[in-house]
């Protein structure tokens, strides 16, 4: 479905800047590079584990630019006390992954 992506353009720009600051290799960030950033949110590790599961859409243990944006979006939602969903809502699936 061509539902608009839940991640707003201005947020995506912000997430991309963080993504690039973590020095992606072949456009991918490994878990150990992303982990400190997500831990910085002070969210419980089990919540971050769920954020990772939902954002690592191809389950390759790495996050690409879009997957990283999904992870950041879920972290910000959790910080605003929005519970992390059990499954990725269709609106959150990056257009590149549909």
């Amino acid at each position: 479905a061509d539902i608009p992506w839940a991640v707003k353009v201005e947020d995506k720009v912000k997430y991309d800047a963080i993504f690039d600051s973590l020095v992606p290799v072949n456009g991918l960030l490994s878990g150990d590079k992303v982990k400190p950033v997500l831990l910085n949110s002070k969210l419980p590790v089990d919540v971050l584990g769920r954020v990772w599961e939902l954002s690592d859409i191809d389950h390759d243990g790495m996050l690409d630019r879009d997957e990283f944006a999904v992870a950041m979006f879920l972290v910000y939602c959790a910080l605003e006390k929005e519970p992390v969903p059990m499954s990725l809502p269709p609106a959150l699936v990056p257009p590149s992954k549909r």
Binding site: G31, K35, V45, G49, R50, W52, E53, G61, M86
Partner: peptide, 13 residues
């Protein structure tokens, strides 16, 4: 129940 995911690809598990 949420799939706990595999620790091999999840740095938090």
């Amino acid at each position: 129940q949420f799939p706990t995911g595999s620790s091999s690809t999840n740095p938090f598990l």
